[in-house]
Each structure stands twice: as structure tokens, then as C-alpha cells.
Write a protein that binds this DNA or RNA. Structure first.
Length: 738
DNA sequence: AGCACGCCGACT
DNA sequence: GTCGGCGTGCTC
């Protein structure tokens, strides 16, 4: 064994630390990629060995000995570890924290990277004979007994037990005491096993073209932007491509945005593919997450599906990476290690020499530009399966119109027509709560968050004022705190308010509100979606949640209540986001026999890009918008990095950024020309959660120039005296300017 | 990030 | 006279 170990530790420091190897003989596979437990300061940490050697610049007396090897062989294989090192460099983030983001919690805590036997519960013969109602007062036990009876021979594993509300394990032990249930330890938790029972439709020519392209790539890197409208069969391409890779003995990684929102996609993979799969989603507990990670690492899971962080899933036999809805902003981590899972997926594919397929109906301008410039292959699915027509768009000019709780007469008329014809209506309003503002009609006071530069949203049903930015909450005042008037009024519309209005306007039509408030309870979203899927007239009203993943075949009319917000947003990406949202929302509607209609309410009906989008489609819009970005020198024609800072006092954040800016300007002058240092400026919402925020933007025409500067600049920032009073973070390729 | 060390105000 | 405020420096 080498005499010195270089260890990355989970601390926000840009240096690795050198240690002597642990006492005793090293395991045969010990070395780079293994975890070690080391003394650090006066505590102990779990670190990852990133290098070994015989020399160190650390003076002898400082060098300490690692305590123990935690892995007999590398936990992270070379391709994955070097990807993480690359990512740490690209995002200018400490390697130890990058590794931390990539590893399941239990592994970070030093848990062995092994399956652990888990409890599995079964019904006994006596339990089978017992009527649950006999356990009168023990309701939980009675419920569990019924579940165990239903589960039969299969029984319930620890994970299933954990999903039952209440203290199910306690109830299980109580049943065991009565002789109604038994448990046994199972060494190998079962993996999710696909059923492979769904028929495999013959690929259409456009779909076949994608598959041919992937086949031709063989063992090589091949990025493909797959642009296909909703219903054009992207999922079928994913499935076929996955089958091809599986047949070649390879694993497939599928990244999806917020998995809870795409059960339909998951369901299809499960039905179609008869292989073990590992699914990473937010509902997993630490042990389940580790199990999924190990299943991927051991190659037992042939398909790995997950959200953002699944891009770091270990894959010993990678063959294909798929990114669904590649434009989705949830692929970008918004705090700490701010990586883009989509971009890392492409880099990982490139380093592994495997194809990567980015699918979407509305490509991000970044990916589109990569396709147009020839860096990515650009393939289309232009036809909706079964020949369904795309919905027709109509802009509703609401200027000067009498709006009833945000609904124009024209929209109400259209709704009446569609509902009378047995169609469903989907209304989109990206604002939950009853009203975004509570105003005193007497003196003009508005309810403002005490910790943010924002207004409280009035949640009428809950009887609370809530700040959507910091989560602060308080009761609704009965009278104005300034003048004592009781004439407090709601200004503006949220989903709760529109829901009320709809109940009055269409008393005979059920209204389903789908937003974060109405789906907070476990299973509530599934229940609402099931309800929405039933035939018959119905109004679906919701926020962003409605725009993603789900398809509502009986919806024939989509109404976008307020498109104005996106048209003149502060962020240069607002328009791109708006266009993607409009197309995605529109894609929720209609099927073969009943093409949908989309109505968009706006005060800016003349907006040129709205015209292009609705008249000529997303592609035309995107190309026109790309030209604007090019002319303005904005991404994807420029590289950006945003240094954010926040502090208790307004001047502290700014002071730090000012010092940082001076350093950056000194560096751009000499070594790293071509980088603009813009700011510091206050953040768009300067005060948030009681802290003042400011930011400094770095922009360069060439990515390489930006990175040359960042390399010299970032590691020294924490040494600036002003850095003490501010909390700061760097965001490379920021998606939001907030 | 933690966590020590280290010098100046209100308290058993 | 002490307990404790958070400024500053370090962690192999």
C-alpha cells in the first residue's frame, strides 16, 4: 500500500487532505475510490480516497493516520469518480461536497456498502382464520391483519410496512404476540421487476430513424436531441432504445423530472420490460435508496430510473442514457452543489462513449443550439400517434374586458360550449392560494411578509396569510393594522378563488383543483388524477403541476388564465419558459377524435413571439428567440456564472461581492480577458427569509475564458475578509437569476 | 462547515 | 471576580 492517501472530505473546502494509511494490512482492493474513516480536527469524518502516493507536502507532525478502510474495494469506479472530479472542476465546487451529493446518505455516514437483511412479515395459519373485526379496539392491528391476509404467501417487506400509516411495525409485533403473524429475515430485498407483458407496437418510420441512429452509434458517444410533440411516441422510442441496449447486455439510465409527476412513464417501463429496475425517487427512505444504489452498482438493476441525482447512479455496464423532458428546470440543482443533471448526463455519456438521448416537445434553447450547430443529432417525431391533430390556439385579448375572477366572457363562453358537448375543461393558473395580495381599501396597506420583500398570499380556506418565498405564516388580521378599517380586500386571483367562482358559474359541473395545497396529503394527487380520468364534464383547475406528465384525453378545452407574467418577466429566460409551458399545457389536451382548443388570455395580444409561437409553432418561436439571444449576446451564445451572496445586513452581502468583483476585474485585466464582471446588484427580491441578497454576474463569449477566470478566482473568495459576514455560493450556468 | 482559541460586558 | 458574546484561524 502506498504511504500517503489523498482524501476528499465532506467539508466546503477546496483542498483535499493527506493521511497515512489505516493501521494493519490494507484490503486487497484498497485505494482510489474507497471510503476511509479519518480523524479531522477534533472529530471524525468519512472521506473518499482520490489519490495515493509516496509523497506529501504536508509536514510530518501534521500528518495523521486514517482510522479504517470502509470499503474492501472501490465504492466508486474510475469512470464515475473521474466524472465527479470533472464536475467539481466545472462547477468550481469542493470535491468532497460533490462526492457527498453523489452518494446515498447511509454511505456518507460510513455504513457498509452491502445489502442488509430485512424483516419480512407473513400471516400465520391462525391469522388466516381470524376475522380482523375480532381485534375490535386495536384498529391498527386489524388493518394490518387484513393487509397481511390480502398479501398471502408474498407477505409484506419492511418497505411496504413502512408505507402503512401509523406505527405499522409495532402493530406487526403485536400481531406476532397473538400468534397471528410471523416475521423472517430476508437477505436480498427484491428489486422492482418489470412485467414485460405489454405488446410492442411496430415502430413508425420516424421512430425507427432514432433507433437506427442509436444502433449506428454502437459503442460511441452520440448525443441526440429528439424533438417530438406530446403523443408522438417518445416513450415508445425510449422503450425500444432501452430494449436495444438491454439486448446488448448493457444498463440503461433514464432521468426524469420530478418522478412523482410522471407515474405514467414509470408504469409503461414496468409493464413493458421484463428486467429488474431500480427507481430513485423522493419517497425512498435511506435504506431503500442505498438498496437501489447497490442494485445499480452490482449490475443487478438493468434499468435505473430517477430524478436529478440519479445521474450519479453507478453503472458498471452502461449502454445508454435517456433524459426525458430535457428542458425541465428541475434538472438543475438550486442550492449547494448547483449542477445540471442534463448537462452532466451528456458529459457522462461522452466520457463513457455511449449515446445519450434528450427528449422533449419543447427543447431548451441550449440543446436546440447544440442541435442546430451540429454538435447533437437532431431528430423529430412530427406526427401524433393515431393521427391526432394538434390543438388549435387562440389568443384572447382581455384588455378592457370585464373579467369575472380572471375569466373573460369569451373564455366563459367557450367553456360553456365545451362542457355542454360533454368535454372537459382544463384551466391553468400558476398561482395558488385565494389571492396574492390582501389590501386595506381604506388606507392602502398591504399585507407584506415580515422577512421578505414580498406580499403574503391569502389562503382563505386555511384562514392564513402565507409567504410563498420563506414559508412564514400568520393569521389573517380582522382589521387593518394601520388604520383599523375592517374593509380588507383580496386583490388578484389564485386557484382557490377561481375554484369558488367556477362553483358559482357552473354549479352542476365538478371542479377539481390540483395544486400543492390540494395535493399535500399523501395519495391526494393520485385520487384527484383518477377522478380527472373519469369521463363526463368536469373542470380541472391547477398550477404548474398540471402541465407536467399527465395526459387528460377527455380535455377538449385548455384555458391559460394569465399569460402576461411570462411575456415581460425580469429573467431573460422568462419567455422561453412561457413558451415551453404553453406548449406543454396544450399537450395535455385532446385525442384523435376530439382535437383540443387552447385559449390564452393576455393583455399583450400583439407580442411578436406569442404570434410566432401560436402561428408557426415552438420550433419557429425557438429559432426566432435564439436569434434575439445571439444578438443580445446571451446564453446559449454566452457563458455565465452568478456569484450570489446573502447576509443579515444589506451592506454585508454587497460588500463581499464588491471585494470579489474587484478581484475578478484585476484578474480579467491580466490573465483572463474577455470576461465581463457585472455588478454587484441587489437580487430581484433583495430581502428573503430575513436575509439580504445580492449577486454578481460574470459573462463571457467563450466558456473557456470564463473558466480560466473562475479557476483563479473562486478558491480565493473564502479568504476575503468580507466573506466572513456573508454566505455565498457560485452558480455556473445559472437557470434563474434569482 | 464545525470547533477551538481569545479578548471584552452583565451576572451567580 | 466568572460566564459567555462572536471575531479569527485551522482542520492533513
Amino acid at each position: 500500500m502506498a504511504r500517503i492517501l489523498r482524501v476528499a472530505l465532506p467539508v466546503p473546502l477546496y483542498t483535499c487532505y493527506d493521511y497515512l494509511p489505516p493501521p494493519g494490512p490494507a484490503p486487497a482492493g484498497a485505494g482510489r475510490g474507497c471510503r476511509v474513516r479519518v480523524p479531522f480536527g477534533r472529530g471524525r469524518r468519512v472521506g473518499v480516497v482520490v489519490g495515493t502516493g509516496d509523497h506529501t507536502g504536508v509536514p510530518r507532525h501534521k500528518l495523521r493516520r486514517a482510522q479504517a478502510w470502509l470499503d474492501p474495494a472501490p465504492l466508486l469506479d474510475e469512470p464515475l469518480l473521474s466524472l465527479l472530479e470533472w464536475a467539481a472542476g466545472y462547477y468550481h465546487h469542493p470535491l468532497g461536497e460533490v462526492l457527498d451529493a453523489a452518494l446515498p446518505t447511509l454511505l456518507r455516514q460510513g455504513e457498509p456498502a452491502e445489502w442488509r437483511a430485512r424483516e419480512h412479515w407473513f400471516i400465520t395459519a391462525q391469522g388466516r382464520e381470524t376475522d380482523p373485526s375480532e381485534l375490535k379496539r386495536a384498529v391498527r392491528q386489524a388493518q394490518l391483519l387484513a393487509r397481511l391476509q390480502a398479501a398471502g404467501e408474498r407477505g409484506l417487506d419492511a418497505a411496504e410496512l413502512a408505507e402503512i400509516p401509523g406505527q405499522a411495525r409495532r402493530a406487526a409485533r403485536a400481531l406476532a404476540d397473538r400468534g397471528l403473524a410471523v416475521s423472517e429475515q430476508r437477505a436480498n430485498p427484491e428489486l422492482l421487476e418489470g412485467e414485460g407483458c405489454e405488446p410492442r407496437p411496430e415502430p413508425l418510420p420516424e421512430q425507427q430513424a432514432v433507433l437506427d441512429r442509436l444502433q449506428a452509434a454502437g459503442d460511441g458517444f452520440q448525443p441526440i436531441l429528439l424533438e417530438g410533440v406530446t403523443g408522438s411516441g417518445k416513450t415508445e422510442v425510449y422503450l425500444r432504445a432501452t430494449e436495444q441496449a438491454l439486448a446488448a447486455g448493457r444498463q440503461v439510465l433514464l432521468l426524469v423530472p420530478e418522478i412523482g409527476l410522471t407515474p405514467q412513464l414509470l408504469h409503461r417501463f414496468r409493464r413493458r420490460l421484463a428486467v429488474p429496475m431500480a427507481v430513485f425517487h423522493s419517497g425512498l427512505n435511506d435504506r431503500e435508496r442505498l438498496d437501489a444504489w447497490l442494485a445499480a452498482r452490482e449490475g443487478r438493476a438493468r434499468v435505473v430510473i430517477g430524478t436529478r441525482s440519479a445521474v450519479f447512479a453507478p453503472l458498471p455496464e452502461p449502454g445508454l442514457i435517456l433524459v426525458d423532458e430535457e428542458h425541465d428546470t428541475s434538472f438543475k440543482q438550486q442550492d449547494g452543489f448547483r449542477y445540471s443533471a442534463r448537462d452532466l448526463a451528456v458529459m457522462r455519456a461522452r466520457r463513457l462513449g455511449v449515446p445519450v438521448l434528450l427528449g422533449t416537445a419543447t427543447p431548451s434553447l441550449e440543446s436546440l443550439q447544440n442541435a442546430l450547430s451540429g454538435r447533437y443529432a437532431h431528430l423529430h417525431l412530427r406526427h401524433r400517434a393515431g393521427g391526432a391533430a394538434m390543438p388549435s390556439f387562440r389568443v384572447l385579448d382581455v384588455r378592457g374586458r370585464p373579467l369575472r375572477e380572471g375569466l373573460s366572457p369569451a373564455l366563459q363562453e367557450a367553456m360553456a360550449t365545451h362542457l355542454a358537448a360533454d368535454g372537459q375543461v382544463l384551466l391553468f393558473l400558476n398561482r395558488r392560494g385565494f389571492a396574492p395580495t390582501l389590501l386595506c381599501h381604506e388606507c392602502g396597506w398591504v399585507a407584506e411578509c415580515r422577512r421578505c420583500d414580498a406580499r403574503y398570499t391569502w389562503h382563505r380556506r386555511a384562514g392564513r396569510l402565507r409567504c410563498h418565498h420563506c414559508g412564514d405564516e400568520r393569521p389573517v388580521p380582522r382589521a387593518c393594522p394601520d388604520c383599523g378599517s375592517v374593509d380588507l380586500r383580496a386583490v388578484g386571483q389564485g386557484t382557490e378563488r377561481v375554484e369558488r367562482a367556477l362553483a358559482e358559474l357552473y354549479p352542476q359541473v365538478p371542479v377539481l383543483r390540483i395544486d400543492r395545497d390540494s395535493t399535500r396529503r399523501r395519495g391526494a394527487l393520485d385520487a384527484l388524477l383518477a377522478e380527472a380520468g373519469r369521463p363526463g364534464p368536469r373542470i380541472l383547475l391547477g398550477t404548474q403541476m398540471l402541465a407536467k406528465g399527465h395526459h387528460f384525453p377527455d380535455v377538449t378545452l385548455v384555458g391559460v388564465l394569465d399569460a402576461d407574467h411570462g411575456l415581460y418577466g425580469a429573467d431573460f429566460r422568462a419567455l422561453e419558459r412561457m413558451a415551453q409551458l404553453l406548449i406543454q399545457v396544450a399537450g395535455r389536451a385532446g385525442r384523435a377524435e376530439r382535437p383540443g382548443e387552447v385559449l390564452i388570455q393576455t393583455h399583450h395580444p400583439e407580442h411578436p413571439l406569442l404570434h410566432t409561437l401560436l402561428g408557426q409553432g415552438y420550433d419557429a418561436f425557438a429559432r426566432a428567440h435564439l436569434e434575439e439571444r445571439r444578438a443580445a449576446g446571451l446564453p446559449p451564445f454566452a457563458a455565465m456564472a452568478l456569484l450570489r451572496a446573502e447576509a443579515v445586513q444589506a451592506g454585508q452581502a454587497r460588500g463581499f461581492l464588491q471585494a470579489a468583483a474587484e478581484r475578478a476585474r484585476a484578474l480579467t485585466g491580466s490573465e483572463a480577458g474577455g470576461v465581463m464582471v457585472l455588478g454587484p446588484v441587489p437580487a430581484p427580491m433583495e430581502r428573503r427569509a430575513g436575509r439580504y441578497r445580492a449577486q454578481l454576474l460574470l459573462q463571457a463569449g467563450r466558456r473557456a475564458a470564463l473558466h480560466r477566470l473562475l479557476e483563479r478566482w473562486v478558491p480565493g473568495l473564502s479568504e476575503l475578509p468580507a466573506a466572513r459576514q456573508a454566505r455565498w455560493s457560485l452558480d455556473v450556468d445559472p437557470q434563474d437569476m434569482f
